[in-house]
Design a protein around this nucleic acid. Structure first.
Length: 429
RNA sequence: GGAGAGGUGGCAGAGUGGUUGAAUGUACCUGACUCGAAAUCAGGCGUAGUAGCGAUACUAUCGGGGGUUCGAAUCCCCCUCUCUCCUCCA
């Protein structure tokens, strides 16, 4: 959520910066509501003040045993007037709030202006795509004999669900464990295991709600009729990890907080019907190892670079070629003020595909969650939050299958994964 | 699922229809004492918001929501979470 003060003081600037990310802020309407708010709020507060002083007078008079009927008569009409004023203000505040909640974060100054992914900037490349001297297969064909099974996934749960058997299941598990171990043992993150079902308040905190309810899976409890809080399957453990500090007032020495977790992620993928229908790339359920940092505002720029580095490290250790891309204003996620994507080389698609997204959310989520810390001046200040995939496990599996394939259809196990697979060097049917 | 107890400021913990934004302790800040520190003493110290250039004034806030009342931390209703006991269960 943006700082309402910023909108009040610099409406034109905010409107312009939001426009860079294709968000149209109706500045005139906002200004009109805001002017109205000012009037209604002062009216309401005046009435409240009147009520408070009168009530105190009544109390004082009664204590002295005086007659209070005169004051009581004066106050009599106040109640309805006040109720009306409070209602009017509440309705308007609701409108303003709804508007505010739907506004995305402001892009950082270092973010290039652009309309879509074609305007993203490639920052760096690592590794050299391997040259194959045989006809290569894609991960679907490579995975099938090793246990990658879409038919059974669909039988159980419908399209965009998959099932892993045997070698592929083990490889998948090895990848997740390797990532989690690396972040917790080498990169200073605390390993977490979190719920996969969350309240709507958590989703509000990280920004999935109210705007992106369509992307979520909603759940109901058995036997529940109604009257219960809405709950959802997490679309990323960013939600649970980040919201661990929701509502907290932290001590500055607690910062930075670095958390990592391996979890399934559930996404309804509404509105992506035609895209990536083949293979593991876009599923309703996939695993991800997530990194989250809660930091001092001055540290968040550095923390983002560091966090991207942690994700890159995984790709490097797996010896998977990738490139690092700085997203332009038009391609960034709702809550982000700056995002790097890591794209891994997929030989069968002859292209780079997103495998990690690392973002600095600034105070955007912290403001929604009300997560603050005592700063050097003893003042409460919003923290900054960051998160990044390190990495998407399913897509990493795709990348390993395709990049490590051999002419006979077998897969060479990346060296760093062998300890997780009982020393096996090769997976074959 | 059943029974009971409870959710108060950073933390601990009083309070019970009226001047209580809330005792007290602790933490924290300032000052005194000290070479310095500890201890001690004195003072200060919640958060969010509104109006104002500002001093300042005002409003809201005692888990969340609704109600009663001129007035609610305090009374009533609903929800939620925590704890204890029983039940169930992996």
């Amino acid at each position: 959520m943006l700082d309402i003060q910023l909108l009040r003081n610099d409406l034109a600037v905010v409107t312009a910066r939001l426009a860079e990310r294709k968000f149209v802020l109706d500045a005139l309407t906002f200004q009109k509501l805001e002017d109205e708010r000012k009037i209604l709020q002062t009216q309401m507060q005046d009435l409240q003040a009147k009520r408070n002083t009168s009530s105190k007078q009544i109390g004082a008079a009664k204590a002295k045993g005086e007659d209070v009927s005169i004051i009581m008569a004066e106050v009599a009409s106040l109640g309805d007037e006040l109720k009306a004023a409070e209602l009017a203000f509440a309705q308007l505040a609701e409108q303003l709030n709804a508007l505010l909640q739907l506004m995305p974060n402001l892009p950082d100054e270092s973010v290039p202006t652009g309309k879509d992914e074609t305007d993203n900037i490639e920052v760096s490349r690592w590794g050299t795509p391997r040259a194959f001297n045989f006809e290569i297969k894609d991960h679907v064909d490579l995975g099938a004999p090793l246990g990658l099974d879409f038919e059974t996934g669909a039988k159980l749960s419908g399209s965009r669900f998959s099932l892993l058997r045997g070698s592929v299941a083990k490889l998948h598990r090895a990848l997740a464990q390797f990532m989690l171990n690396t972040h917790s043992n080498e990169h200073g993150y605390e390993e977490m295991y979190t719920p996969y079902i969350v309240n709507d308040s958590a989703l509000f905190g990280t920004g999935q709600l109210p705007k992106f309810a369509e992307d979520m899976f909603k759940v109901t409890r058995g036997g529940d009729e109604e009257g219960h809080v809405d709950q959802y399957l997490i679309s990323t453990s960013e939600i649970t990890l980040t919201n661990t500090v929701a509502g907290d007032l932290l001590k500055s020495e607690q910062l930075p907080i670095r958390l990592t977790a391996h979890s399934p992620c559930f996404r309804s993928e509404a509105g992506s019907y035609g895209r990536d229908v083949r293979g593991l790339i876009r599923q309703h359920q996939f695993d991800k190892v997530e990194m989250v940092q809660i930091v001092h505002p001055e540290q968040s720029d550095n923390a983002l670079e560091e966090l991207v580095g942690h994700a890159e490290k995984i790709l490097q250790l797996l010896e998977l070629p990738y490139r690092k891309v700085l997203l332009c204003t038009g391609d960034m996620g709702f809550s982000s003020q700056k995002t790097y994507d890591l794209e891994v080389w997929l030989p069968a698609q002859n292209t780079f595909r997103e495998i990690s997204s690392c973002s600095n959310m600034g105070a955007f989520q912290a403001r929604r969650m009300q997560t603050r810390f005592k700063n050097e001046q003893g003042k409460n200040e919003l923290v900054h939050t960051l998160n990044g995939s390190g990495l998407a496990v399913g897509r990493t599996l795709v990348a390993v299958l395709e990049n490590y394939q051999n002419a006979d259809g077998s897969i060479t196990v990346p060296a760093v994964l062998r300890p997780y697979l009982g020393g096996r060097e090769r997976l074959s049917a």
